[in-house]
């Protein structure tokens, strides 16, 4: 037992690599603070354009959404960062992550918002438009608040996925948590840094999962 602890949770090693790990955590949080809003904004844009119900535009939108939901995000990021320089587009790691997450996360968020908007009865549009609100105001003040509430569990669930997905930023050498932990592990020849990173991810995501369950439960009860 002591041996196992010594291997997987060596306090001495932990203390040595902790500053390193915390720096990685900082980068992960920064990445979340970038990718989640970018994904939400992209998703809202997708859902807004879809709501205009222009047939050909919506066909294109379906292709866009399906394509990027089918495209593995890791492959997408590698393509954006290592592939685009061959056509002269040289991106910083941050820009590459932002673009890859915009394309990937906006497709998922877009689908969720679209379903939410569709769940709002047409009469809501009619009442708002009849009182003189513009299409945009109707979306913003009347439809979107209801839509968001209706798909809140899906939004939280997808946000969890986006947070987990920030680990792929390590392939473009952004020193996020996983990247820092692996580097530390290779320096100390001990898996403790990885275990520490895993525990931090759990601590980060566990409350969100509990929150999600709370909302899912409420949805079930409300039905």
């Amino acid at each position: 037992m002591a041996e196992i602890l010594d291997t997987f949770f060596n306090i001495e090693i932990l203390l040595r690599v902790l500053p390193f790990i915390l720096e990685g955590l900082g980068m992960t949080l920064l990445l979340c603070a970038i990718t989640v809003p970018i994904g939400l904004a992209g998703g809202l844009a997708v859902a807004w354009v879809w709501s205009l119900k222009k047939r050909y535009v919506n066909w294109a939108l379906v292709v866009y959404v399906d394509f990027f939901r089918a495209f593995p995000p890791l492959v997408l990021l590698i393509f954006v960062y290592f592939g685009l320089p061959f056509v002269g587009v040289d991106l910083s790691p941050f820009a590459a992550v932002a673009i890859a997450f915009l394309l990937n996360a906006s497709s998922y968020y877009g689908e969720i918002f679209r379903a939410g908007i569709e769940s709002v009865p047409h009469g809501q549009w009619e009442a708002a438009r009849a009182s003189g609100l513009s299409r945009f105001q109707t979306m913003r003040y009347v439809v979107l608040p209801q839509a968001t509430r209706n798909v809140l569990p899906d939004l939280i669930g997808n946000t969890l996925e986006v947070v987990k997905l920030t680990t792929i930023a390590s392939v473009v050498a952004l020193g996020e948590l996983l990247h820092a932990a692996r580097l530390a592990q290779s320096l100390v020849y001990n898996p403790t840094p990885i275990v520490a990173a895993a525990l931090i991810y759990l601590a980060l995501l566990w409350p969100a999962v509990r929150l999600l369950r709370h909302f899912e439960h409420r949805h079930l009860v409300a039905r």
């Binding site: 009865p121 009469g123 009619e126 009849a130 003189g132 609100l133 009347v142 209801q146």
Partner: peptide, 19 residues
């Protein structure tokens, strides 16, 4: 939208904003 300020509309299913 200005014209619609002059025309009130009341619906069979009320269509109140529930939020």
């Amino acid at each position: 939208n200005a014209v619609r300020q002059k025309i009130g509309m009341v619906f069979q299913s009320f269509n109140l904003y529930p939020h």
